[in-house]
Design a protein around this nucleic acid. Structure first.
Length: 285
DNA sequence: ACCCAGGCTATCC
DNA sequence: GGATAGCATGGG
């Protein structure tokens, strides 16, 4: 990837198999905004402002000089052309790959994914974004930069110190105690990223599901987006609909859903799912 | 006003 | 083991 330095910005070449906006608009990140073509996202204590013009991706990162972090975060260091070739096994998938061309799975922080997907249950994406934003502005740490201010996601320690009543006031609903339990488990070190990384996917899933309020679907999203287990295929209401209508599953259960995904898309079932999810949602709009 | 949303827990059989 | 009510809240 050749880099060209500009005035405090950086531009890199990206392949056709990368689309910045589609990637963020595929329901895996809840902290981004887009304004005049510029996408802004906070990750940990960093901020990225980026704009894509065809095969050119323009960066303004805070702090600067951190290119390798962002190329990894955006999965630009992976060979998606190779992955996608293996997915094109049937007509609905071929259509989704075309519609969603450019989507990548982001390498997002484990804790962020845990919080976001606990909030995601029985909820819609615009409201999930609002709730996450409220958590950040209320309990996060401000990052000041050139007159603008961004907020980090509160740490497990910070969130563990917040009462359910207080969280309820932000609008999180009955998920208040789920957030507190997750925060406590992370803060106490009962859930550790290093341990999860060493576990098999099945073991890690069980560990995540020991958090009160994390069931199979939320655990799967954490595994896919936060631990990069590409073989994991979360099925939410949209995917169930797709499996029913386009893959002829009469009733989608955890069992037959996973079997179908694993059978057709193997180690990349999670990627396949992301394209189907994006396409199904776009169709509705 | 109504149905729905990247579901989970508790409780039933 | 599998099926179902109840859940807080607001987007469309």
């Amino acid at each position: 990837m050749d880099q060209v330095k500009e005035t405090s910005t950086l531009a890199i070449h990206v392949p056709d198999s990368f689309d910045l906006i589609k990637t963020f608009d595929s329901g895996q990140n809840f902290r981004y905004t887009v304004e005049k073509g510029w996408l802004t996202v906070v990750v940990g204590e960093r901020v990225l402002k980026a704009k894509q013009e065809k095969n050119r991706l323009i960066f303004k990162a805070i702090p600067p000089e951190d290119l390798s972090f962002w190329t990894h975060y955006l999965s630009l260091d992976e060979d998606y052309d190779a992955y996608l070739k293996e997915l094109c096994t049937d007509t609905p998938m071929a259509r989704a790959l075309e519609k969603g061309k450019g989507i990548r799975i982001l390498k997002q922080p484990l804790w962020e994914m845990t919080v976001c997907f606990i909030l995601s249950q029985n909820n819609n994406i615009p409201r999930i974004k609002k709730l996450v934003d409220a958590l950040c502005t209320t309990y996060g740490v401000p990052i000041h930069h050139e007159g603008a201010v961004f907020y980090t996601l509160p740490t497990p320690e910070r969130l563990a110190a917040v009462s359910c009543e207080e969280l309820r006031l932000l609008g999180v609903g009955y998920r208040d105690r789920y957030l507190v339990d997750a925060a406590e488990r992370f803060a106490k070190g009962e859930i550790r990223e290093a341990s999860l990384k060493e576990m098999s996917t099945a073991e890690a899933r069980k560990m995540l599901m020991s958090i009160h309020g994390v069931g199979g679907k939320v655990a799967d999203c954490i595994l896919l987006f936060g631990l990069h287990r590409y073989e994991v295929c979360p099925h939410d209401v949209w995917i169930k609909r797709v499996f029913k209508e386009q893959y002829r599953l009469e009733t989608v259960t955890e069992k037959n859903g996973y079997a179908l995904a694993r059978e057709r898309w193997g180690d990349y079932a999670g990627l396949a799912q992301q394209f189907l999810f994006y396409t199904a949602r776009q169709q509705q709009k």
